[in-house]
Design a protein around this nucleic acid. Structure first.
Lengths: 119, 119
DNA sequence: AAAGATACATAAGATTCTTGGGTATTTAAT
DNA sequence: ATTAAATACCCAAGAATCTTATGTATCTTT
């Protein structure tokens, strides 16, 4: 039996962009705080994106043309909604496919199940 | 269809220790160059561990008591064999289990297949 | 009134990888 | 014979990305 409260940080490294892009593809648009909350909820707290990691990543994705933003006021508080550009759509597909392929390869490499014919 | 010559480096980050520990658990003992060659072979070139990443990781694992080494001379050339300590055995199991769990979570999070009951 | 949740953001430091060296021996090709 | 490629180790500057800590401000619940 194996218990795990939260994954070691090194494991999550490199998957953050993929997680964000895929969530946005699914939900249409989200704001930063919402993303961290949703990921935490969906993973039973096993993946907790810190804001120090989230916001720089969102900004970099926006700067790179993958995301676009619109501000909205909730009362006096600003909320910044992010959504995928068409380029972001493509990148999201690519990254998810690559990660799926990678996980297949890792499964084989770690001998976690008999070889499946890594198509 | 999805083609992939080599995974983006960011994806591989954080799995290097796990790959090394698991290989050593399987093979008993290996030397550095052999590890890179084996991983490249097993993954059809999709994961290529550079020596700049490999050796610092091996040294750090040794320093941390997970690995022990013995030198052998092949002609005039030194070869440094690495093997798991008993602590390394435990760490290897832990890390492989954690990665398997993580990949399950990621599959669910990325909606790559219907929910399996993430036990 | 205070505490906690919501919501954004930045920055110093740590970690880990990439890139580009360096040294040296052995084997295969020209 | 000589060159190129493979084997085999290593280090270090720089880049990328995350952690940790901090800052500001509003809204909601106790």
């Amino acid at each position: 039996m194996y218990l795990c409260l939260m994954y070691s940080s090194e494991l999550i490294k490199g998957t953050l962009k993929t997680i964000i892009l895929n969530l946005l593809r699914d939900k249409g648009r989200m704001y930063g705080y919402e993303i961290t909350a949703k990921v935490k909820e969906l993973t039973d707290g096993k993946i907790q994106i810190t804001e120090g990691a989230l916001y720089p990543t969102l900004h970099s994705l926006e700067k790179n043309g993958e995301l676009e933003t619109e501000k909205e006021f909730i009362g006096k508080r600003v909320r910044k909604y992010y959504s995928l550009t068409s380029q972001g759509q493509e990148t999201a597909s690519q990254k998810v496919n690559e990660l799926a392929d990678f996980m297949n390869t890792m499964k084989f490499l770690l001998d976690l199940e008999p070889k499946l014919g890594n198509a």
